[in-house]
Each structure stands twice: as C-alpha cells, then as structure tokens.
Amino acid sequence: MFDISALNKRYFEIKLTAVDDDGKEKSLKLEVEPPKIKVLKRLFSIVKKATEISKISKEKQKNNSDGSTEDIDQNVVNANIEIFNVLLEAVQKILSKNKSHTKVSTEYLEDLDLDQLIEIVNAYFDWLNKSKESNPN
C-alpha cells in the first residue's frame, strides 16, 4: 500500500536578519515546508494581484504623460505600497509554515524592502519548481 506519510519532506532554507533596538544584528534560519494546495492557490492569486497592480500603475503612468510629474510620482508610490502589502502577506504565509514551528516576528519582515520581498517569493517558487523537476521520470 502506498503510504503518503512516507514521502520524504523537502524544505526551503532561508536566513532572515534584523537589527534590534541596541543595534545588534540577529538572524533567523528557517526550514520552510512546502505549501498545501489551497495555500499555493492563494499565493498564486496574491502574486497575480501584485502583477495586476503593477500593470495598472504602468498604464496609468503612460496615460498621464501629460499630467504633472507629482501626480505620476504619487501614483507610483501608491501602487508600490499596495504591491508591498500584498507581497508581505504572501511572504508571511510562506514563512509561517516552517519545520521548527517558529513564529516569524514582524521585526524580521518590517525591514525588508519591495525588491527583497520579490526575491523571496521568486526564490520560493524557483525552489518548488526545481524540486518538481529534480527527480525526473
């Protein structure tokens, strides 16, 4: 009989760093578990939403080429904040399911910038894809 619990687990390893109030740098190593199907679907929809916001923002920039640069800048800032919040939700979801059941405190996440969030999400999806392809037929 095929026993699903006998499957060898694979983990996504990630190291987060944060600076505490005394200026000391501390780090947190996590072994993130693969997501459940329903979480993966949610992650896809979150990333899709972030992509759509980015696309709309770029179109607005294009259409507002006659407008003042201040309006354009404000639109870009607003879109980036929205994308940041959406991706932060995705990263929190990804990291919360780890091997040691460590709760990732916000101090590790609040210092991340948009590029770092995008990198984490990309690396996570790359890991999923490579794990799938690494043991071919």
């Binding site: 699903i4 687990k9 694979r10 578990e33 693969p34 459940k36 199907i37």
Partner: peptide, 9 residues
C-alpha cells in the same frame, strides 16, 4: 486534496 502538500499532490 486541498489539504495535501504540493509535493504529495
């Protein structure tokens, strides 16, 4: 099925 990990699925 939705509660299986992606690798199991």
């Amino acid at each position: 099925l939705n509660n299986l990990s992606v690798f199991e699925f």
